[in-house]
Simulated assay, not measured.
Amino acid sequence: MDTSAMIKGVAAGVPYVALRPEGTGGPAPAVVTWHLMDAPRSERAMASALPMSGVPAWRVYFGLPMSGERPLPGGPDEFFRLAGEDYVLNIAEPVTDQAAAELPAALEALREQLPITEAPIGVAGGSAGSAVALEVLARAEVPVAAAALVSPVIQLAPVVAANARRFGVTYHWSERSRAVAERFDFVRRAGELGTDVLLVVGEQDDVAFREPAEALYRELGERGRLVVVPGMEHALAEEPGLEPAPQTPHAAVADAEFTEWFQRRL
């Protein structure tokens, strides 16, 4: 996509890029999105992968803590050191909690910077970013019209097991980390997600993502939609996934599903 169309800014300390709504010169609602920790792993790259151009709303892509425009002082080496020490307590919990807690003030600041209406927002996310979107729904601190998730983290414990398999390590659970995993089990908390949720999963993604998405879909009933994308794995962009890049065929499928979902609900 044309990266010159991206508006870059900071809202209450949270870096973002925004895409203007097409076909309207006046105020419009917003969809706020959080990126993956896999590719695309920055706000600019996520905007390129899932632009949702047909949605008549501002599409705003927030950077996650510890990544994107807010890397740790030690960079990727420090990130992987912390993840190796305790992924749940050092990465998953603080990133999800901080990103969700930042939203109310960031949204208020956005409305001072961009002509965004007071209408309920859409929320979206991929992988780690989807856990943020789900936590935002559960906290209910801002009105949300609908949510859309791709390669979603629905239950933290299976994802920890998948990472252990992927990197050939053993995660040592503690009482505290088990409590965190229980809190970030959104199948169990499905009743707290008070809006419609779209779930887009890759047919070739790890079972740690596919099966919890299916379980959440069953719990949501009529409030949910599950789309399985043939041949898709977990990532939505080619590595390294930090800068805008041509949209992959699988990302195009997810983008079309997100676009139709929000067109009907905003």
Rank of each mutant, 00 (worst) to 15 (best):
T3D: 14
K8T: 14
K8A: 15
K8Y: 04
K8I: 13
G9N: 04
G9Y: 01
A12V: 05
V14T: 15
L19R: 13
G23W: 00
G25Q: 00
P27Y: 01
P27K: 02
P29A: 08
V31R: 08
V31G: 06
V31N: 04
V32H: 07
L36T: 15
L36A: 15
M37T: 15
D38K: 07
A39Q: 10
P40G: 09
R41C: 15
R44F: 06
A45Y: 09
A47G: 11
A47H: 03
S48E: 05
P51S: 10
G54P: 00
P56L: 06
P56M: 08
P56R: 15
A57M: 06
V60M: 06
L64N: 14
L64R: 07
P65R: 13
P65Y: 07
S67C: 11
G68C: 03
R70F: 03
P71K: 14
P73L: 09
G75D: 03
P76K: 06
L82D: 10
A83Y: 14
G84H: 02
D86Q: 07
Y87A: 15
V88G: 08
I91L: 15
E93P: 00
P94E: 10
P94I: 11
D97W: 09
A100D: 09
A101M: 06
L103D: 11
L110Y: 01
E112D: 13
L114G: 05
I116R: 01
I116Y: 02
T117C: 06
T117E: 06
A119T: 08
G126K: 00
S127Y: 00
A128F: 14
L137R: 10
L137T: 10
L137H: 10
R139W: 01
R139M: 03
V144M: 03
A146E: 01
A146Y: 01
A147E: 01
S151G: 15
Q155S: 12
L156R: 04
A161C: 02
A162T: 03
A162I: 00
A164G: 08
R165A: 14
R166C: 00
F167S: 12
G168H: 08
V169P: 01
V169F: 12
Y171M: 00
S174R: 14
E175K: 11
V180M: 07
D185K: 03
R188S: 14
G191R: 13
E192N: 05
E192C: 04
L193T: 05
T195C: 15
T195G: 11
T195Q: 04
D196R: 15
V197R: 05
L198I: 09
L198Q: 09
L199T: 07
D205F: 05
A208W: 05
A208C: 10
R210T: 14
R210A: 04
P212N: 09
A213L: 00
A213R: 01
E214H: 09
L216F: 08
R218H: 12
L220G: 12
L220T: 12
G221K: 13
E222Q: 13
R223T: 02
G224A: 11
L226Q: 05
G231R: 05
M232W: 13
M232C: 02
H234V: 08
A235F: 01
E238H: 12
P240V: 07
G241A: 11
E243N: 07
P244I: 03
E257C: 12
T259M: 11
R265T: 04
